[in-house]
Structures are given as C-alpha cells and as structure tokens.
Amino acid sequence: MLKKPFIHPFLPVLLLVAFSCWLLALTSCAPNANMQGRGNDAMQGEWKQVPEAVNNQLVTYTLYNFKFTCDSFFVAMQTHSRVNYGTDTCMNKGQWTEYVKGRYQQTKDTVWMRGFFCNPNYSLKNPGGCFRSGVYEAYFKVENVADTLLRLTPTSSVLPVTLHLVKRTNCVPKPL
C-alpha cells in the first residue's frame, strides 16, 4: 500500500500568500514614462495677459505670462497692489513677480497645474524670503476663444485670465 505524502496544514495558505504577493508586485508597479508628455497642442507656446481696464479698479491684481512646452509650463505672475503686504524691499512699491514651473494636465475643459515656485532662471526657490515658496497648485477652466486667444478662468476666482499668443511653438517631447 502506498503511503500518502505529508502536507503541512499551513502550506496551502503559504502558497496563496506567496502567489498574492507575486501578483501584487507584478501589477502594482509600472515604470515612469521616460519621455515628456505631449500636452495640449492648442496651448503650446508663449502667452501673455494684457492688462484690462477693470484692473485699475482693483486693490490687487495679477498679470500672467505663460509658456507651455509639451506637458510642462512656466509662469511669471506680476502682481500689482495698492496695499502694502510686507516690507517695501520685497514688494517694490506694490509690484512684484513670482515664478512657477511644473506640469499640467487637461481633462475636458479643466486644466490642472502643479509645480513649484522657482527663481526666474528656473531653479527651485528656497523656502522663506519675501514671497511664496513650495508647491503651487491651480485649476483653471480653459476656453480656446480663437487660435491666438486663450481664456483661463481660475476656480479660485471669478476674473478670467485672457491670454494673447506671443509665440507659437511645437511640442518636441524630451527624455526625462
């Protein structure tokens, strides 16, 4: 008579756990893309906001200059204020500029911009100092008014940002 082999009672559980871990490791990790994404073709280029008459009636307003390259953006935000928010050495008599670089994604009519405050030369800004530093995150409703006119309405404001095309560029994805 043949003798049955001994199978430890925990062996099926151990095999199930090992298989589950292997399957989880296989499906949960995906390598990051090694190329820059394409972004929105209609937004590629340099865009500048022209001051509007309503700005003179506001206590504080900001003018935006965007540069979209594939799925990346760089923005210079020129703020004008009649209120002194800090030392005059920082605020330069009510006028100052902040810079942000990052990536954007568009889903339907909303563009999500996430990046970091930086210096004019694109280097990351050290925390502290006169202006904001760290993470920048903004959502805009985007509307292509014309081939050379783009309207971004921030979800945190009611005033739209109307941008005029300064220079059209084409996306040439770069390795990351």
Results as ranks from 00 to 15, higher is better:
Asp109Leu: 03
Val166Gly: 04
Pro5Gln: 04
Phe19Leu: 13
Lys141His: 12
Ser81Gly: 01
Asn40Lys: 07
Ala25Tyr: 14
Leu152Glu: 05
Thr169Gln: 13
Met1Val: 13
Asn34Met: 14
Val172Thr: 15
Asn65Cys: 03
Pro160Glu: 05
Cys130Val: 00
Phe10Gly: 12
Tyr85Thr: 10
Lys125Cys: 02
Pro31Met: 07
Arg38Asn: 08
Pro12Tyr: 05
Asn55Cys: 03
Leu163Gly: 06
Val100Tyr: 05
Phe73Asn: 01
Asp88Pro: 12
Ser72Asp: 12
Leu58Ile: 00
Asp109Glu: 03
Trp112Asn: 13
Arg38Asp: 09
Thr155Gln: 12
Lys101Cys: 07
Val161Pro: 03
His164Ile: 04
Leu14Ala: 15
Arg132Thr: 07
Thr162His: 03
Asn119Met: 05
Leu26His: 12
Glu98Lys: 09
Val161Arg: 01
Val59Ser: 04
Leu58Glu: 00
Asn126Met: 11
Asn92Asp: 07
Lys4Thr: 08
Cys70Met: 02
Val50Thr: 11
Trp22Gly: 11
Thr87Cys: 10
Gln44Trp: 01
Tyr64Val: 00
Ser81Ile: 00
Leu163Glu: 04
Phe66Ala: 00
Arg103Gln: 13
Met35Thr: 09
Thr155Met: 15
Leu11Tyr: 06
Asn84Pro: 15
Leu16Gln: 07
Phe117Ile: 00
Thr107Phe: 15
Thr69Ile: 08
Thr148Phe: 10
Leu15Lys: 14
Leu159Tyr: 14
Thr62Cys: 01
Val17Glu: 12
Pro127Lys: 02
Leu23Val: 10
Phe140Glu: 02
Thr155Leu: 15
Thr97Pro: 13
Phe74Thr: 05
Leu149Trp: 13
Asn170His: 10
Gln105Val: 08
Asn119Ile: 02
Leu14Pro: 05
Gln49Thr: 00
Leu165Lys: 15
Asp109His: 05
Val100Asp: 03
Thr62Ala: 00
Leu14Gln: 12
Arg132Glu: 09
Val158Asp: 15
Leu14Trp: 10
Tyr139His: 15
Arg114Phe: 05
Gly102Met: 04
Leu23Cys: 06
Arg132Ser: 14
Asp109Trp: 02
Thr97Asn: 08
Leu11Glu: 05
Phe73Arg: 02
Val158Asn: 15
Gln49Trp: 00
Gly115Ile: 00
Glu52Lys: 04
Thr162Phe: 04
Gln105Ser: 11
Asn65Gln: 06
Gly115Trp: 01
Gln49Tyr: 00
Leu58His: 01
Glu46Phe: 09
Ser133Val: 04
Pro120Leu: 05
Trp112Phe: 14
Glu143Thr: 12
Phe10Cys: 14
Thr62Val: 02
Leu159Gly: 09
Ala146Gln: 13
His164Phe: 10
Glu137Tyr: 14
Pro127Phe: 02
Ser156Ile: 10
Asn40Met: 07
Thr162Met: 06
Tyr85Asp: 11
His8Arg: 06
Leu159His: 14
Ser123Lys: 04
Thr27Cys: 04
Leu165Val: 06
Arg151Gln: 08
Val75Arg: 04
Arg132Tyr: 08
Thr89Tyr: 14
Asn55Gln: 04
Ala138Phe: 10
Asn55Tyr: 01
Val13Pro: 09
Asp41Leu: 07
Asn144Gln: 15
Ser72Cys: 09
Asp147Glu: 15
Arg82Pro: 09
Asn40Ile: 10
Thr69Ser: 11
Pro175Asp: 11
Val161Leu: 03
Val172Cys: 10
Val172Glu: 14
Cys29Gln: 14
Gln57Ile: 08
Leu149Lys: 15
Arg168Cys: 03
Gly129Arg: 03
Tyr136Met: 05
Pro154Gln: 11
Ala146Pro: 11
Val13Tyr: 13
Lys101Tyr: 08
